[in-house]
């Protein structure tokens, strides 16, 4: 039985889709069978980030409505042959996903794949709740910034109340993934520190992904950042986060920026 991992955040644009692609590809590279499911109905993007946009024929809604079989809708990655994508549909009908339909699809995926990553839409409404509904674990993507942390806290509340596991009195394993971390700004005390974020959310840390040009480059190329150039800082951070997700006990090192001469002269201090 595979594990179902929802990648969620509440706030939009924090890096859920980027993280789903990067973590999924990283796990698949180790030989595990991985399915990425795009739950962002109406605003699908995971296909683009994965470079599969021209190969989409059927989608999640087709499978739920019975117009396509799951095996017809799954797109196999051209680079890693254990990695698959189930795209979202572009329909504007937000009710196209039913809870029973999603449950059936997730059950089938769980029986075939080692990992099922669900890329949640932003918000805390129906779409986000369906994406987390059948999850065993959650990756809460958070930027070190007040509104993102607040939304993460609300998502944590939903994970503990509205998921199948929660309703059956079981734990859902939660991990915080801090993305777009800017070490220089953190050093100047302009950004919430990792300790601040963890203390406020009290959820264990999966990893720290630095703000990086390589992420943009990877999305331009249509490839998860962990597949384009596994040596850049963002890719390395995602690869390590993926190993932690698989249970490896790997310490997290907070990216560190030496204070510049000017900072020291002006006595700017990190708090």
């Amino acid at each position: 039985m595979g594990k179902v991992v929802v990648v969620t955040s509440g706030k939009g644009g924090v890096g859920k889709t980027t993280s789903t692609a990067a973590l999924g590809a990283a796990v698949a590279k180790t030989g595990k069978k991985v399915a990425l499911v795009d739950f962002d109905v109406g605003l699908r993007n995971l296909d683009l980030i994965m470079g599969a946009e021209r190969r989409v024929v059927f989608d999640l809604v087709n499978v739920i409505q019975g117009t396509a079989k799951l095996s017809q809708a799954l797109i196999r990655d051209k680079r890693v042959d254990t990695l698959f994508l189930l795209p979202a549909s572009q329909t504007r009908d937000k009710d196209a996903l039913t809870e029973d339909g999603v449950g059936e699809v997730i059950d089938k995926l769980r029986s075939v794949f080692d990992y099922v990553f669900c890329d949640s839409p932003a918000g805390i409404e129906r779409g986000a709740q369906l994406a987390m509904r059948f999850a065993d674990e959650a990756v809460i993507v958070t930027n070190p910034e007040v509104s993102s942390v607040r939304d993460s806290d609300r998502i944590i509340g939903l994970l503990d109340a509205r998921t199948m596991r929660a309703e059956h009195g079981e734990q859902i394993a939660k991990h915080v993934l801090v993305t777009r971390y800017d070490a220089a700004r953190a050093a100047r005390g302009e950004m919430l520190s990792i300790d601040d974020v963890l203390e406020i959310l009290s959820v264990p840390l999966l990893g720290i992904i630095p703000e990086s040009q390589d992420v943009l480059r990877a999305s331009n190329l249509g490839s998860p950042v962990t597949l384009t150039d596994p040596l850049n800082s963002a890719a390395k951070a995602y690869l390590e986060a993926a190993r932690r997700l698989e249970g490896e006990d790997l310490p997290v090192v907070v990216p560190f920026e030496r204070k510049g001469f000017l900072d020291r002269l002006l006595g700017r201090r990190a708090a």
């Binding site: 910034e145 607040r150 953190a186 100047r188 005390g189 919430l192 520190s193 601040d196 406020i200 708090a271």
Partner: peptide, 18 residues
């Protein structure tokens, strides 16, 4: 020239709000 760092303020506001 010293700008007071804003992160501690952010942390405090979040703690109260949450």
């Amino acid at each position: 020239f010293r700008r007071r760092s804003s992160a501690p303020v952010a942390r405090e506001r979040l703690q109260v709000l949450l």
